[in-house]
Measured scan of single mutants.
Amino acid sequence: NITAAIYDEIQQEMKRAKVSQALFAKVAANKSQGWLCELLRWKENPSPENRTLWENLCTIRRFLNLPQHERDVIY
């Protein structure tokens, strides 16, 4: 289940792992930094009809659900 909290989790994970938006986007969703920036802007007004947005957030959720040491190896 995806909630608005995922946006904060993304920010916290980037700080914790000391990774850039570009690197996080690449490893978590195989996307660009610009894409992640755009995604983070949706926090203010996520559209329930935007299926692509929710699919991408689900992809990021799966990455964030990995154990921390696995995420660190991927970075």
Rank of each mutant, 00 (worst) to 15 (best):
N1T: 14
I2V: 01
I2N: 05
I2Y: 01
T3V: 02
A4W: 15
A4L: 14
A5G: 15
I6R: 03
I6Y: 02
I6K: 00
I6E: 01
I6P: 01
Y7K: 08
Y7G: 01
E9V: 06
I10V: 14
I10T: 03
I10D: 00
Q11A: 13
Q11E: 08
Q12C: 12
E13M: 00
M14H: 15
M14S: 05
R16C: 03
A17M: 11
K18W: 10
V19A: 12
V19Q: 02
S20L: 06
Q21M: 10
A22T: 13
A22I: 14
A22Q: 05
L23Y: 13
A25E: 15
A25C: 01
K26W: 07
K26E: 08
V27Q: 09
A28S: 10
A28M: 10
A28L: 04
A29Q: 02
N30Y: 08
N30L: 09
N30T: 08
K31I: 07
S32M: 09
Q33N: 05
G34H: 10
W35Q: 07
W35F: 03
W35K: 10
L36V: 14
L36E: 01
C37D: 13
C37Y: 07
C37A: 04
E38V: 07
L39M: 07
L39D: 06
R41Y: 13
R41P: 02
W42A: 10
W42D: 02
E44A: 14
E44Q: 03
N45R: 09
N45V: 08
P46L: 08
S47A: 07
S47P: 10
E49Y: 09
E49T: 15
N50E: 05
R51A: 07
R51M: 13
R51L: 12
T52R: 11
L53G: 13
L53H: 11
W54F: 03
W54S: 08
E55K: 01
E55Y: 02
N56L: 10
N56R: 11
C58S: 09
C58Q: 10
I60C: 03
I60E: 00
R61I: 08
F63N: 00
N65V: 12
L66P: 01
L66I: 03
P67C: 04
P67A: 06
Q68Y: 06
Q68S: 13
H69Y: 02
E70L: 05
R71E: 01
R71S: 00
R71W: 00
D72N: 03
V73P: 13
V73I: 05
V73A: 15
Y75T: 03
